[in-house]
């Protein structure tokens, strides 16, 4: 299998701020690659370089075999991109939007019109097709935006946080579409902050922090990498949360993660069900009421928080 996206040593800085600090990526054709990272990690900068919008200060990258700097003009005809904000024209109807994009890909008037109708049908937007986009819902606009990225049937697709701000149903709908595209052979590079999204869609994942890849692998590999079971608990009050953190500290094999707002805590343990029983026993002894408790494998959230070191910072902040 050849790599549809290849990047080596990408560097980009804005003044004193280093957005990318030697980023390497390789995405095999026909797979979904997830780029995970906190805000400001350099995900969007990476996508902008790979879609020819920014020139890297150093390093090089090819997409679909074309160099992102030297062959930028030709490359643009072979990629589709859909961003965080729906790139649609409010005053035009859905059909007019897609036709315009088709014309700008130089498909010709007739083909542009046909392609617009095909995509509107595929994305279930035929009812609204001839209404100005201004009155559309957020989910519909995002579907139209994704449709816009697909007008020229690009072999490589870049999705920068495609479902940020969507309701769960709209998100699930978009996931289905992306899965279909991949089944047809499209290569997708996806950035997201939703671990569930990466878990469900991405064949391989790279965790990016401070402009560099700090871990890569399949979702399972990454979860194994940080290892261990977790006891998840939620309690009924803020005071209980602090008491519970103290009571369970001896059981924890790593830092306890606390979500103060949700009154929830995650305790890394060893020993599975025994640890859960032990934890509940300790809480009962302290007379701490438990609203919900469970044992689970690490999620990508845990991977993310552990690897980017955000978990520990958060605990200190919230418990104190």
């Amino acid at each position: 299998m050849t790599d549809a996206i290849m990047a080596t040593g990408l560097v980009k800085s804005y003044g004193d701020v280093t957005a990318l600090d030697g980023l390497d990526l390789a995405v095999p054709q026909g797979t979904v690659f997830g780029l995970l990272g906190p805000n400001g990690a350099g995900k969007t900068t990476a996508v902008r370089i790979l879609t020819t919008l920014l020139r890297p200060d150093a390093g090089q990258a090819t997409v679909a075999g074309l160099d992102v700097v030297r062959d930028a003009a030709r490359l643009r005809a072979r990629i589709g991109a859909s961003g965080q904000y729906a790139a649609v024209d409010d005053h035009l109807t859905g059909a007019e939007n897609l036709e315009m994009v088709g014309r700008l890909y130089h498909l010709g008037t007739r083909r542009s019109r046909e392609r617009a109708r095909e995509l509107l049908t595929r994305f279930d937007l035929t009812d609204a097709a001839d209404r100005p986009v201004r009155g559309w819902s957020g989910g519909m606009r995002r579907r139209l935006d994704l449709a816009g990225a697909l007008v020229a049937q690009p072999p490589v697709l870049f999705l920068d946080e495609p479902t940020t701000g969507l309701d769960p149903r709209a998100r699930a709908g978009l996931w289905d579409v992306i899965a279909e595209l991949v089944a047809e052979g499209t290569t997708v590079l996806l950035t997201t902050q939703y671990m569930e999204e990466a878990d469900r869609l991405a064949d391989r994942i790279a965790v990016v922090d401070q402009g560099r890849v700090i871990a890569r692998g399949t979702a399972d590999e990454l979860k194994d990498q940080i290892g261990g079971d977790r006891v998840e608990l939620s309690v009924t009050g803020r005071a209980d949360l602090e008491a519970a953190t103290r009571a369970l500290a001896p059981l924890a094999v790593e830092d306890i993660q606390v979500d103060a707002a949700a009154l929830r805590m995650t305790v890394p343990v060893t020993g599975g069900a025994v640890a859960l029983t032990e934890a509940l026993g300790r809480l009962a002894a302290e007379r701490i009421a438990v609203r919900d408790a469970g044992l689970r494998r690490p999620t990508l959230d845990d991977v993310f928080l552990t690897l980017t070191g955000q978990g520990t910072g958060k605990i200190e902040e919230t418990v104190r």
């Binding site: 919008l53 030709r74 589709g80 790139a87 024209d89 409010d90 990225a149």
Partner: peptide, 17 residues
């Protein structure tokens, strides 16, 4: 300041269009 320019950016269109 609106979204449509994000689309234009990615298209193989003339820079003065």
């Amino acid at each position: 300041q609106k979204g449509i320019f994000d689309r234009f950016r990615t298209l193989p269109m003339s820079p003065s269009a």
